[in-house]
C-alpha cells in the first residue's frame, strides 16, 4: 500500500494496465510530452514511448473517432478529453458510434475503450471547465459511466474499465484530484463495475452521492450528527451505469429517507433517476420526501462558483427537509 492522491491513483492505474497489456494506448491533447494539463499521464510517454502515449491534434472528434477505430481493430485505447466540457465535438462519435457499435452489428463488432475526462466544479474554471455532464451519457444505452471518489477506487475502477468489453466514460472529479488522499494497493487492483460503496453506515437517512460530492456529504453528515443527532448513511454508487440499485434500495429500506446530491443542474440530473428507482421499488419504506440537492438550473458561474455548488449547508438543509413534511 502506498498513500496517493486521486490523480496518482489514476496514473498508477494507467501505468499498471499499460505494463500489463500492450493493446492499451493513451492519447489526447497535451497528454504526451506535457503529461496532461493536470499531469495525470505524466511519465507514460517516457516509459512506453510515443507509440503508446502521444499528443493529438486539437480535435475531440478526431480523438474519439480514431479511438473507436482502434478499439474495433483490437486495441484498448484510453483517450483523454482535456475537460469534460470539451467532449461535445465528439458527442456524435460517442453517442451514435461507440455506444451503438455492438448492438447495431449484432455483436460482430465491439468498442472496448475508456474515455477519461476530468469533470465537475471547484477549480475556478467558470462555464467551460466545471460542468458535470454525466446525465447526457447515462442516457445513452451502450455506454458505461464510472466516477471514482477515492484514490484506490480511481485505480481499481480504471483498470476494470480498461478490461471491460464495452465503451466506458470515466469521469474524474478534478476538484479532489490532489486533495483526496488515501491508501492504494500496489500492482494489480480491481474494483468491479456495478458495485457501490457504503461510505459510512447510518440509520436515519441515506445520501447517494458520487465524485467530489461524497466528501461534501461526509462533512455534512458530521454536522448533522453533531448538531441534530441525525445518523446519515452515505452510498457512493461508483458506477452510474450499470448502477448498484440493490445497495441503494437496501440502504433506503433501512433508513426510510433519501437525499441525492449532485453538482449538475437539478433538472434531468442523475439524482432524479435514483429518486425514481427508489420511488418505484421502495416507496413503502419511505418516511419522508425524497430530496435532490444539486447545482442550479443555470450555466456554471465563475465568481459565484462556491454558491452554485452544493455545499455542506445545502446538504444539511436537504437532509432536514426529509424530516419536515
Amino acid at each position: 500500500m502506498a498513500t496517493m492522491t486521486l490523480l496518482e491513483g489514476i496514473r498508477d492505474g494507467l501505468f499498471t494496465e499499460m505494463r500489463n497489456d500492450d493493446r492499451v494506448l493513451c492519447f489526447g491533447e497535451d497528454v504526451g510530452r506535457n503529461g496532461g494539463v493536470f499531469r495525470t499521464t505524466d511519465g507514460l510517454q517516457k516509459e512506453f514511448g510515443e507509440e503508446r502515449c502521444f499528443d493529438t491534434p486539437l480535435s475531440e472528434c478526431g480523438i474519439i473517432g480514431t479511438a473507436i477505430g482502434m478499439a474495433m481493430y483490437g486495441l484498448r485505447p484510453v483517450p483523454e478529453i482535456q475537460f469534460q466540457d470539451f467532449i461535445f465535438p465528439a458527442f456524435d462519435q460517442i453517442v451514435s458510434e461507440a455506444a451503438k457499435i455492438r448492438y447495431r452489428s449484432g455483436g460482430e463488432y465491439t468498442c472496448p475503450m475508456v474515455i477519461r475526462t476530468p469533470y465537475g466544479g471547484g477549480i475556478r474554471g467558470g462555464h467551460y471547465h466545471s460542468q458535470s455532464g454525466e446525465a447526457y451519457f447515462c442516457h445513452t444505452p451502450g455506454l458505461k459511466v464510472v466516477i471514482p471518489s477515492t484514490p484506490a477506487d480511481a485505480k481499481g475502477l480504471l483498470i476494470s474499465s480498461i478490461r471491460d468489453e464495452d465503451p466506458v466514460l470515466f469521469l474524474e472529479p478534478k476538484k479532489i484530484y490532489r486533495t483526496m488522499k488515501g491508501e492504494v494497493p500496489e500492482g494489480e487492483h480491481v474494483v468491479p463495475l456495478g458495485k457501490g460503496r457504503i461510505v459510512r453506515e447510518g440509520k436515519d437517512c441515506t445520501i447517494v452521492a458520487y465524485g467530489a460530492m461524497v466528501e461534501t456529504c461526509e462533512k455534512a453528515a458530521d454536522e448533522l450528527k453533531k448538531q441534530r443527532g441525525i445518523d446519515v448513511e452515505i452510498v457512493d454508487p461508483r458506477t452510474l451505469v450499470p448502477l448498484d440499485e440493490k445497495m441503494i434500495l437496501d440502504s433506503v429500506r433501512k433508513t426510510g429517507r433519501l437525499v441525492t446530491v449532485y453538482e449538475a443542474p437539478k433538472t434531468g440530473g442523475f439524482g432524479g433517476e435514483i429518486a425514481a428507482i427508489v420511488a418505484e421499488n421502495a416507496i413503502g419504506s419511505l418516511e419522508g420526501p425524497i430530496v435532490r440537492v444539486a447545482g442550479f438550473d443555470t450555466p456554471f458561474p465563475y465568481t459565484l462558483e462556491g454558491i452554485y455548488m452544493p455545499d455542506v449547508r445545502r446538504v444539511v438543509r436537504g437532509v432536514e427537509r426529509t424530516f419536515e413534511w
Binding site: G122, I123, F296
Partner: peptide
C-alpha cells in the same frame, strides 16, 4: 429558477469559497 433562487436566498448569507486550482 425562481423557486431555486428563493430557496437559496432563504438560507441567508454564504461565502463563495474557491478551493481548487486551475491547471490550464
Amino acid at each position: 429558477l425562481r423557486e431555486q433562487r428563493d430557496e437559496l436566498l432563504s438560507l441567508g448569507e454564504a461565502k463563495s469559497e474557491h478551493e481548487g486550482y486551475f491547471p490550464l
